[in-house]
Amino acid sequence: MPDLSTRLAREREALIDTIEQPPLPLIAGRAASIRRRRRARRAGAALAVLAVAGFAGLRPWSTDAEPAPVAEPSPSPGVVYTDAGITINGLTGDRVLDPRGRVTDVAFADPDNGYALVECLAGEDPCPASLARSTDGGITWRLAAMPPARDAAADLAAFSDGRVVLGGYVTTDGAQTWQAVGRGTGPASTVAEGQLLRLGAGGAIEVWSSMYGDRGELTSQPERMAVNWVAGAPTATGGWWVGGTRDGRPAAAVTRDGGRGWEVHEFAAAGSTAQVSVLGNRVYVTVLGPDREISAIYRSSDAGRLFAPTGTGRVTTPHGLSGEVVPLLDGRLLAVGLDHRWYLSEDDGRTFSQADGSLPQIGRIVRAPSGYVAYDLFGSHWTAFSADGSTWRKLQVY
């Protein structure tokens, strides 16, 4: 019979064999990933300091790993750019989806689910267009399937029911598969809830549906009005605004009954178009000249039934408007100038002051059905999304 010490040694070995060993390869991989993220965060912080100093053309991110199709979330908050109550939350983690080309169109069906179209523009080396999809508000992205063919001039449109329309095709499964839809053969009598209005060829207002794409021109168009701007989203009560000119004067029109009838407002200021910004009952009309200089801003506090100018004479700062004016929840107005800087007004647009801080250069802000999209950040083709115009998320697709 084995002595006591021999039995104890055997039992100890048997016990060790029953203990599951840690997955050393997985642990090593995770450790390497953590080291890469730490290096990326240190490099990102250093580049952010350079950006504030004026090197806005540099990319405010760096990594020693190749871009991957899927970005992993990171507990790091990333670099934050802010001034005057405007905040842009920068990149998180160390992965950015970087397909060939540049982001030319962004559409969010809701604050979580978004799509980004990436293309090479005219004059650049040609490349196939690609589509990226995010389900977490733009933090992580993966490549999705493109339609088999598409009209290059067609917009990317994401609808509240989860469907996406792009270039004559519709997807119902998150851009895994696409089905062709025919353009409407006749006029559309109304624009229903969940549908969109878009500016068509020749200034006609068109109706877009998540089921059929472009349904055709709206039957009733604003009387005697040359439309050259259509709101990116309806108001909270379902009204749709358009802008342009009427008998040579800047004008804006709204339909409150799904496109059956229009209420037209003409404005005395000189200009070639009028753009409308809405938040609740506050409605602002920005009259723009041919070079997008701001001729005047009009305000309504009764959902756009009566307007009054907010000041006398032209708005001299900013010198021109890029994109659209954004009404903020705190009562201020946000605007982007043609000089690629951020401007804020505390007096309904009578005067604007420039916001500096660490806010980056910006190309323009565009209204979308679920919020706002900022294009061409940092003097490059970064984009950001905001539900309210004050707090932005830099999209991790480039």
Rank of each mutant, 00 (worst) to 15 (best):
Q361M: 03
R183L: 11
D347K: 05
I294S: 07
V52I: 07
F55R: 05
L334C: 04
P23F: 14
G232M: 00
E20N: 03
W262V: 02
R350M: 12
V96M: 14
L26F: 01
I294R: 04
R142D: 10
R305Y: 13
P77H: 08
N113M: 06
L329I: 06
V254G: 02
Q354C: 04
V278L: 13
R246S: 12
V103A: 15
A296G: 05
A56K: 01
L377I: 03
S300Q: 10
R393H: 13
V287I: 15
K394W: 08
L143E: 14
P99H: 14
A28M: 00
T172C: 04
F55W: 06
R37H: 02
L50K: 06
S210I: 01
P67D: 14
P111Y: 09
E223M: 07
V336W: 03
S370A: 15
P111H: 09
Y81I: 04
H340V: 03
P327Y: 07
V165M: 12
R215I: 10
G29R: 06
G232N: 00
R292L: 11
D112A: 15
A43I: 08
G379W: 03
D173L: 06
D247S: 13
S272L: 10
S345W: 08
P75M: 08
L321P: 00
G93T: 08
D173K: 06
L166G: 05
A384W: 10
V325T: 13
V278C: 14
E263V: 04
W240Y: 14
K394A: 13
S74A: 14
V96F: 13
I34N: 01
L377Q: 02
S277N: 07
T18H: 10
L8P: 00
D98G: 05
D257A: 04
L344H: 03
G213Y: 12
S130W: 09
S33C: 01
R292E: 12
A153C: 04
D339S: 01
G213H: 12
D388F: 06
D155M: 08
G29L: 07
D155I: 03
W229N: 03
D125I: 10
A53Y: 02
E66F: 12
C120A: 15
M211C: 01
G85T: 08
V366D: 11
G114N: 13
I27N: 05
R183S: 13
A152R: 14
G57E: 08
L197E: 02
D94Q: 12
G200D: 05
A157D: 13
E13A: 15
G379C: 02
G357I: 01
F267C: 06
D151M: 01
P128S: 09
L333C: 08
A384H: 07
S300V: 09
V106A: 09
L197T: 01
A144H: 09
A152W: 07
R36K: 06
D155F: 04
W241S: 09
P128C: 12
G271I: 05
P22T: 11
R314F: 10
D112Q: 15
A116K: 08
V79G: 00
T177D: 07
P23N: 15
A132P: 12
H265S: 14
R95I: 04
R305P: 01
V49R: 03
S272N: 11
S353K: 06
G168D: 09
H381C: 08
G320P: 02
Q21M: 11
A9V: 06
A270C: 03
G313Y: 14
R100W: 10
A68C: 05
P250R: 10
V287G: 12
R30A: 03
V181M: 05
V70R: 10
L306D: 07
